[in-house]
């Protein structure tokens, strides 16, 4: 493998890891506050659909992005309503959201566009264009560092940089602010937070709304950044891989970055090489596709450290019995 190929694979890794990273951070906020969320997939799908549709109608990708975020937040609040206010089962409510999104997107797309559940192709300002960072062209001839900067660092859409910026931001919010301390506390011991006079319900709603915003960006990135339109079920299980990454990262933001980049790398390698020949042993492409899940199971089984979820996760908070 030469240097240029390596860069291309890493470039592909960044593109594939970005939606995973955003969804993973979304799950991080929600689960740190004690709300399990396997509905990341559905929220991304809904956001992908609405962002593409609105971008198509208005011709502005930014309005599309806002619409996608709004749709995702709406589903988040629905999940919050079911699992926080009405203390329902969080898994069931999230599964329902996944089904709802899978059905509604295709149904509405068919009613609006009559193209078999997809949106028309977006053109011009209706999609995110790659951003060329300053000096990318001038620095390109510099050996080693030049191509790294111009090929790998530069040339992504703005949402990629936004997603990367979200990692330190998430760390700062959760570990360096009062809001973050309370949010984590709500996920560990809501009764203690309640005793301190802070609204558990309010904190949890705050967390699921942040989760919705991040999922919305992830979905919009799929439909208007990576693609030029929505196709039914286009998230293709990325919400679940993001959940696996969240467990792999043990619910920590920097580790989430590492986990999603690793999973992105596995996908990028699988895309580039159908079968990998390691001196006589051929690794089929399916192994690469399955590896994220296998790794997660290994982590869960406790072989590589222990993955301890937030203690109050999945439990609706009941103030008094």
């Amino acid at each position: 493998m030469d240097f240029l190929t390596l860069l291309q694979v890493l470039d592909s890794t960044v593109r594939l890891a970005t939606p995973l990273l955003l969804a993973c951070l979304a799950g991080l906020f929600s689960e740190r506050a004690g709300i399990f969320d396997i509905g990341l997939e559905g929220k991304m799908l809904m956001a992908a659909f609405l962002s593409a549709s609105v971008a198509f109608f208005t011709g502005s990708v930014w309005i599309g992005l806002l619409a996608g975020i709004a749709a995702s937040v709406l589903l988040s609040v629905l999940h919050g309503l079911a699992s926080i206010t009405f203390r329902g089962n969080q898994l069931i409510s999230a599964v329902a959201i996944n089904f709802l999104a899978a059905g509604l997107t295709v149904l509405i797309a068919q009613a609006w566009f009559r193209e078999g559940g997809r949106t028309p192709s977006l053109i011009g300002g209706a999609r995110f264009e790659p951003v060329t960072l300053p000096l990318a062209e001038t620095l390109a001839p510099v050996p080693v560092l030049g191509p790294i900067y111009s090929e790998l660092v530069s040339g992504h859409t703005i949402l990629v940089y936004l997603a990367l910026a979200c990692v330190p931001l998430t760390w700062w919010v959760l570990w360096r602010t009062r809001f973050g301390l309370r949010l984590r506390a709500v996920g560990e011991n809501p009764a203690a937070v309640d005793t301190a006079g802070i609204s558990v319900v309010g904190m949890r709603y705050g967390a699921v709304v942040i989760c919705g915003v991040l999922c919305g960006i992830a979905g919009a990135y799929l439909a208007t950044g990576l693609q030029a339109g929505f196709v039914k079920d286009m998230t293709a299980g990325r919400g679940y891989i993001a959940l696996a990454a969240l467990i792999f990262a043990k619910w920590r933001p920097w580790h989430a970055l590492g986990a999603t980049l690793l999973f992105g790398l596995l996908q990028a390698v699988a895309v580039r090489y159908q079968n990998i020949d390691l001196g006589g042993v051929v690794i089929p492409v399916q192994v690469m596709d399955a590896l994220p899940y296998v790794l997660t199971v290994v982590i869960l089984a406790g072989f590589v450290g222990k993955a301890i979820p937030p203690r109050a996760g999945g439990e609706p908070y009941v103030k008094e019995r």
């Binding site: 592909s12 939606p19 693609q227 079920d233 286009m234 293709a236 996908q267 990028a268 895309v271």
Partner: peptide
């Protein structure tokens, strides 16, 4: 059949 993102990457 419905993963245009992966289609793009390939």
């Amino acid at each position: 059949w419905n993963d245009p993102v992966k289609g793009s990457e390939i």
